[in-house]
Computed example of a mutant assay.
Amino acid sequence: MGKQNDAFTAYLGRAEVLADLYNGCLYQGEEVVQAGNLCEVQQFYQQRLSERVKRPTARRRERDAIRAFWNEKSYVLLAAEAQNQPHLTMPFRCMEYDLAEYARQLRYIRLKSEGKLKTGVEYLSKMGRNDHLTPIVTIVLYHGTEPWDAPKKLSEMMELEEIDPILKQMVQEYQIYVFSLEELQEEYFQTNLRELIGLMKRRSSKTKIQEYCRKHADRISRMDVATYDMICVMLNLKELQDKKEKYLENGKECIDMCKAMEEWAEELREEGEQLGMKNTLKLVAKMSENGDTEYIARLLEPEVFEQMAEKYGMKA
């Protein structure tokens, strides 16, 4: 699962995918966030440790994905975290990232204002009244198979039942936004993130994967290479990954994954038939050894085959 989460992290780092993620999760597919209006920002932070700790003086923390989004109305930082299993401290983890980013912004403001703030509150604060922090929004994309049953608010990590109501209201509500694949509407996404989500939602059934590919052949037949690689990793399709060069088209800009899936399904069918034949021969041998020869000629009858398979412990 670590390899899959690393792959998802790299995939979310693409501007067009991050924009599509926000539009699909928050704006029902409306293109509010445009990839052309996203720019790279610092993705990692150096956290200083106590001088009394006899270890390196700093450690590096890195977000999965973050970009600055700007338009005529606003300037905000959009971040995303990929998570493959529920995490009981996820609100705190996201808060740590946010605090590290705000601390970086404050250091920049103080450096910019050094020597300019002479007296009063601004001097004490090392920040001018017209200076502002850039807000951060974080989406957690959960791609695990178990339901998310972990906290989404900082307060859900606390025991607040016995606290005085007034004090309870004063506890800050720090909330994270967790979107599980199962709750996402595929049609809200415009990039091949749509197909990645659609296939991962059906990963428990090869038949459903095939049905999805046939139904959406127009898009899946011209999939970008990065998404093809992601699908191979997330669905554990190493055989398709090894054959990637075979399906590259249009100057190696996109891949016909529909054709790849069809050939993969045919290979699975042939393997299944071969396995079925081997199992049938084994069953016939056991029946002959134990005197059930009168039923061998009737094995094409489903009821007889099932009865004999169960008798000899070969029922699937």
Rank of each mutant, 00 (worst) to 15 (best):
K152R: 15
L248R: 10
K208E: 15
K252F: 06
V178L: 12
N192K: 06
L160Q: 04
L240P: 07
S221Y: 02
S180G: 15
Y228T: 12
L196Y: 04
E162V: 04
V178N: 08
G198L: 03
L184P: 06
E245A: 14
I220A: 09
E249Y: 00
K246D: 11
E156G: 02
S205F: 12
P135L: 03
L181S: 06
E245W: 05
M230T: 06
R194G: 01
M170D: 14
V178P: 06
E161H: 05
S155K: 13
R129L: 11
S155M: 07
R129E: 06
S155T: 15
D256M: 04
I209W: 00
I166K: 08
E195G: 02
S155H: 07
I139G: 02
R202I: 02
T207L: 13
H132V: 11
A217H: 07
M261Y: 02
Q172H: 11
E146P: 06
M157F: 05
D218M: 09
R129F: 14
E161T: 13
L235W: 10
V225C: 03
A150H: 08
K153L: 13
R214V: 14
N250Y: 04
C232R: 03
N130K: 07
M158L: 15
M257S: 10
A260K: 03
M158E: 14
V140D: 02
A226K: 14
L248I: 00
E262F: 04
M157H: 04
N236T: 12
K206H: 13
I197A: 03
D224F: 03
A226C: 08
E187N: 09
L160D: 05
Y188F: 12
Y188K: 07
A226Y: 10
P165D: 12
Y212E: 10
E173V: 05
F179I: 05
N236C: 13
V178D: 08
N250E: 13
E263N: 00
S155E: 12
T134M: 12
E161P: 01
Q241H: 10
E263L: 03
P151K: 11
L199P: 00
S205D: 11
K259L: 08
K215R: 13
T207A: 10
M170G: 09
D256Y: 03
T207D: 11
Y174D: 05
M170N: 13
K246I: 14
H216E: 13
F179A: 08
